[in-house]
Amino acid sequence: MPPRRVVTGRSQEPRQRFAEELRQLRAGSGASLRQLGDRLGWDWSLFGKMEKGETLGGPEVVQALDQHYGTSGMLLVLWELARGDKTQFKERYRRYMTLEAEAVSLWHFAVSVLPGLLQTRGYAAELLAAGGFTGDGLTQQVEARLGRQELLEGEGAPPFRTILSEAALRTALRDSQAWREQLEYVAEVAEWSNVTVHVLPFSAGLHGLNSTDLWFLRLPDARTVAYTENAYGGELIEEHGPVEQLQRVYDAVRDLALSPAESRKFVLRMLEEVPCDPST
C-alpha cells in the first residue's frame, strides 16, 4: 500500500479547520457574508465570527450551512470535533512560541501575573497548579516554562522590556519564602543589560491595557506581531493596523510607568515587606 499523503496548508486543529472550511466554501460560492446571512436567515455577523474561529455557532446553523453548500454533513462532523476540542488555542500559541524564538526584541505588559520569562520555579509551580496541572503534567509544564528563559541568556540574547502592573507584584505566593525568591529574581534580572523592567503603580490610574496581557515580537524581517492572552487562551495578531494601534496604547502605558531605576527600587521595597524565613 502506498504511503498516505499528507494534505499540507490546512490546519490540523479542529476549531481552526472548521473555520477554514467555512471561509473556503463561502469564497468558492462567491457570496458575501451579508448575502449568506440573507439567504439562510441569520445575522451575517454570526457567520463572520464563525469564519474567524471566534464562535462555533449552534448545530442548527451548521446544518443549514451543510445543506446550503451541499457538503453532506461534513460541516456538522467538523463542528462536533471542534466543539469537543479543549485545546483550541494551542495552534496559535505554538505559532507564537515559534516566533518568540526568532524575535530580535520583545516587549511585554503584565496585568496580574508575572511573565513566564521572569518566573522562578516556585512561582511557576504554584501558578500552573492553580490552573489545574498536577503530578507529572505539572512537572513537565514547569520545566517547559523555565526552559523558555534561556531566550534571555547568553551572547546575542534579544532585548526584553516588560511593564509589570503593581497588581502583578502584589499578588503574592502562599509560600512567603518562594515569593521572596521571586521578587529577588525580578530585582536581579532588572539589572541585566538586555532586560528593562518598568513598574506601573496603582496611582497611574485607568489605562488602555487594564484587562490585557500583551506581547510584541520584533522579527528578523522587521515585522512586529502582537499576542494578547488571558487565562483561557490567546490571540496572535499579525495585521499591521491592529498591531500599530496596540503599540500606541503600549507606549501610552509606558509613559505612565516608573523608570527602570525607580522600578527596581519599588521591587526592593516590596522585598522588605515579605517576612523572612526564620530557619535561614
Rank of each mutant, 00 (worst) to 15 (best):
L152C: 07
I163K: 00
E100R: 12
S32I: 08
V77C: 00
T139E: 12
L128K: 10
R94H: 14
E80Y: 05
A157R: 06
T87Q: 11
V113P: 06
L152Q: 04
A103F: 14
E91N: 04
R39G: 03
L33H: 15
A157I: 05
G57T: 02
M97N: 06
W42D: 02
K49I: 11
L56I: 04
L46R: 02
L78F: 15
D43F: 11
G147K: 07
T139P: 05
V77Q: 06
Y69Q: 00
S112Y: 14
L152F: 06
R83H: 15
A125Y: 00
L99Q: 05
T120Q: 07
V77D: 07
T87E: 10
M97S: 05
S72F: 00
D85L: 01
F47I: 02
A110C: 00
K49V: 11
G58W: 07
E100G: 10
G137F: 09
G135Q: 08
F89W: 05
L36D: 13
A144H: 10
R92I: 09
L99F: 14
A130K: 09
L81Q: 12
L75T: 10
K86M: 12
P59E: 08
A168E: 00
Q149T: 04
R95Q: 15
R148Y: 13
R95N: 14
A157S: 06
T98W: 15
A82Y: 11
G53Q: 10
K49A: 15
S112M: 10
D43E: 14
L46C: 02
R161K: 10
G57V: 00
E60C: 03
V61A: 04
G154C: 10
Y96L: 12
L78T: 03
W107E: 15
L33E: 07
V111Q: 06
R34C: 12
L146T: 01
L106I: 15
W107V: 10
S45V: 07
E80R: 06
S105T: 06
R161A: 13
L76K: 00
V111A: 06
L152M: 02
A64N: 07
L117H: 07
Q149L: 09
S72G: 00
P59S: 06
D38Y: 01
R170P: 09
D85R: 04
S165A: 00
G73M: 13
W42N: 03
E150A: 10
E51S: 03
G37T: 10
E143D: 09
D136Q: 14
L33F: 04
S72Y: 01
E54Y: 08
Q67F: 09
V111H: 04
T71I: 14
D66W: 08
H68V: 05
E91V: 05
Y96V: 13
E91Y: 14
E153S: 03
G73D: 15
A110L: 00
E155N: 03
L36S: 02
S165G: 04
L114I: 09
W42H: 02
R170E: 02
A101T: 15
E60G: 03
S32M: 01
S165Y: 09
A167K: 04
L46Q: 10
L118Q: 05
G147R: 09
D136H: 13
E91Q: 12
E54K: 07
G156T: 13
L40Q: 00
Y69L: 03
S112G: 11
V61D: 01
L75Y: 14
L36H: 08
L114R: 12
